[in-house]
Amino acid sequence: MRHIISVVLENETGALSRVSGLFSQRGFNIESLTVAQTNDPSLSRMTIVSTGDDRVLEQIVKQLNKLIEVVKVSDLTSQDHIERDLMLVKISPTKKDNFDLKQLVDVFSCKIVDVTDSTYTIEISGKTKKINAFLDAFDPTSILEVSRTGVTGISRGKKLI
C-alpha cells in the first residue's frame, strides 16, 4: 500500500537527516520526500511517500512522532486529500513521437517553458499517475532529462493537519 505522510517539524538543521535516518535505520522505504519551510518560518513541512502494510504504516507514524523535533504527523492517504507532483522534463522528440506536441501539452494541461533548436522543456504538475502517463506518451529515447519534486499534499476542505 502506498501512503502519503505529512510531517510538520521544527525548522532546524539536522531535522531532515533525523527523518531520513529513521527510514533507513528501520528499513522503511521512501519513494519520495519533499521538504520546505511553511508560513511559520520556525516550522518545516515534509511529505513522504512510502509503501507498506498497515502495521508498517503504524510504526512509521509512531516512530516519526517519537522524534523530538516532530510536531505533527498525518497519513494523508487515509483522508480526502489533494496531492501534486511537479516535473520539469527536457525532451527531444524523435520520429517515433508522431503526434503534435502542442496538442499533447494541451491534453495534459501543462506548459512548454523553454525551447531550443532541438529540445523542449516542459513543466507539468498533477498526480504521480498523470505525470507518468505523460512520460509514457514519448518514445523513451526522446526523454533527455527528468527532474521531479516528488509528491506534496494537503487535506481537502476545512480540516487542518
Binding site: R55, E58, Q59, K62, Q63, N65, K66
Partner: peptide
Amino acid sequence: IDPSQISK
C-alpha cells in the same frame, strides 16, 4: 510509555 513499542 512509548507508543512505538505497542504492536511493533
